[in-house]
C-alpha cells in the first residue's frame, strides 16, 4: 500500500509536468494527429486517476491491506460509527483531499457543460432570427456579415455550420466546399466533446501546466484532423487558399474589427493568459499552414503502435495498482 501510493504520486507528478511539456514541444503530433490526440486523453485520464488514487491509497493505508478492504473499512467508519482511531491526521487529510478533488472535477465538468449548453442555446436562438438557410444543405446557414467568417455550432441533431456573406463572396466554390467539409468534420467526429472535457479539466485545475498545454494541443490537433478530412475531397492548394483568405480577411479587412468590436489582444482578461483565441490559435493557424505546405509522412506504423501501447499502459497501470491487490487478496 505504501509503495503503491508513492508510485501513483510520482506518476501523477510526471504526467502533470514534464510529460505534457515534452509532448507539447514535439513535432510528431502534426504528422499523426489522431494518435497524438489519444495520447493526450490517456495522459489526462491517467494523471487524474493517479492523483486521486495516490491520496486515497495513502489515506486508507492503516484501514486495510488493499484499496477495496480499505474502502470497506472506511464505509464502516462513516456509516456504522466503527472506531476511527486507526487513521491519523494526515490519513484523514489525504482522504478528504481525494474526496474534494473528485467532487471538484465532477462538479466543474457538469458546470462547464451547463454553461456551454446555455451559450449554444442562446446562439442558436439568435441564429434562427438572424441567419437564413443556405443552398448548401439543411445544416448550413448564412449570416449577413461582411468579414469572412465560418464556424460550426454543435448541438446534436441541431448542429449547424454558419457562413458569412463575406465568406461566400470571397471564396470560390471549391474553397467553400473545403471550408464546409472542414466544419462538418468537427461535427461528425464530435470534437466538441473533447473540447468540453479539456476545457473543464483546465477550468478545474488552471494552475497545472498540463491542463493548459493539453487544451491548446487538443484545439490544434482537431483543426488538423478536420483539415485532413477536407483534403479527401479538395486539393491542398484549395484548402490553403481558403485558410489564407479567411485569415487575412478576418484580421486585415478594414472595418471588420471596428464593426464588431472584436477584442484586441490587450482586452484579454488578466489572469487568463493564453486562454484566448489570441496567441494560441495564431500558432495553430501557422502550424496548420506549414503542415499543408511541407507535408511530412505520418509516423511509421511501429511507432504509432508504440504510442498506442503507451496509452493503454498509462490507463492500465494505475487502474491495476488500485484494484488488482484487492482482487488477489
Amino acid at each position: 500500500m505504501f509503495w503503491t501510493s508513492w508510485f501513483l504520486a510520482v506518476l501523477a507528478i510526471v504526467l502533470a509536468w514534464p510529460v505534457p511539456i515534452l509532448l507539447s514541444r514535439a513535432q510528431w503530433p502534426a504528422r499523426s494527429p489522431f494518435t497524438a490526440m489519444l495520447l493526450w486523453q490517456a495522459i489526462a485520464l491517467a494523471g487524474g486517476l493517479s492523483m486521486i488514487g495516490a491520496m486515497l491509497v495513502y489515506g486508507l493505508e492503516p484501514a486495510g491491506d488493499n484499496l477495496l478492504a480499505g474502502l470497506r473499512a472506511l464505509a464502516g467508519m462513516v456509516f456504522n460509527n466503527a472506531p476511527t482511531t486507526a487513521l491519523g491526521f494526515w490519513h484523514i487529510f489525504a482522504l478528504s483531499a481525494a474526496a474534494l478533488l473528485t467532487a471538484h472535477l465532477v462538479f466543474t465538468l457538469l458546470l462547464t457543460y451547463y454553461k456551454i449548453q446555455r451559450q449554444r442555446r442562446r446562439h442558436r436562438e439568435l441564429l434562427a432570427l438572424l441567419a437564413s438557410p443556405s443552398a448548401d444543405g439543411p445544416r448550413t446557414m448564412v449570416i449577413n456579415v461582411d468579414s469572412p467568417v465560418a464556424y460550426c455550432l454543435p448541438g446534436g441533431a441541431r448542429s449547424v455550420t454558419v457562413l458569412s456573406d463575406g465568406l461566400m463572396a470571397a471564396l470560390e466554390p471549391a474553397e467553400l466546399r473545403a471550408v464546409l467539409n472542414h466544419e462538418n468534420a468537427h461535427l461528425d467526429q464530435r470534437h466538441h466533446l473533447l473540447l468540453w472535457a479539456f476545457a473543464a479539466w483546465r477550468q478545474a485545475l488552471p494552475w497545472l501546466p498540463t491542463t493548459r498545454l493539453a487544451q491548446e494541443a487538443v484545439s490544434s490537433l482537431i483543426e488538423m484532423l478536420a483539415d485532413d478530412v477536407a483534403l479527401k475531397t479538395e486539393s491542398k492548394a484549395t484548402l490553403i487558399k481558403a485558410i489564407a483568405i479567411v485569415a487575412s480577411g478576418s484580421s486585415g479587412a478594414p472595418g471588420a474589427r471596428m464593426a464588431f468590436g472584436e477584442p484586441e489582444l490587450s482586452d484579454v482578461e488578466p489572469g487568463q493568459p493564453g486562454a484566448t483565441g489570441g496567441a494560441g490559435s495564431a500558432r495553430t493557424t501557422a502550424s496548420r499552414v506549414s503542415r499543408l505546405l511541407s507535408p511530412q509522412p505520418p509516423l511509421p506504423e511501429p511507432l504509432r503502435a508504440a504510442v498506442l501501447a503507451a496509452c493503454l499502459l498509462l490507463l492500465a497501470v494505475p487502474t491495476a495498482l488500485l484494484i488488482v491487490p484487492g482482487l488477489l487478496g
Binding site: T112, K115, I116, Q119, R120, H123, V149, A150, Y151, C152, L153, P154, V162, V179, H182, E183, H186, H191, H192, L195, W196, A199, Q203, Q215, S219, I222, A242, I243, V246, A247, S248, S250, S251, F260, E262, P263, L265, D267, V268, E269, Q272, A275, T276, G277, G278, A279, G280, S281, A282, T284, T285
Partner: peptide
Amino acid sequence: VLGSAPDREAVLARFIGSVT
C-alpha cells in the same frame, strides 16, 4: 464567434482562429 472568452472554443469551432 470572434471574441476571446476563455471557453469560446468549447462553444463553437471557428474555421480560423484569431490571427495576428
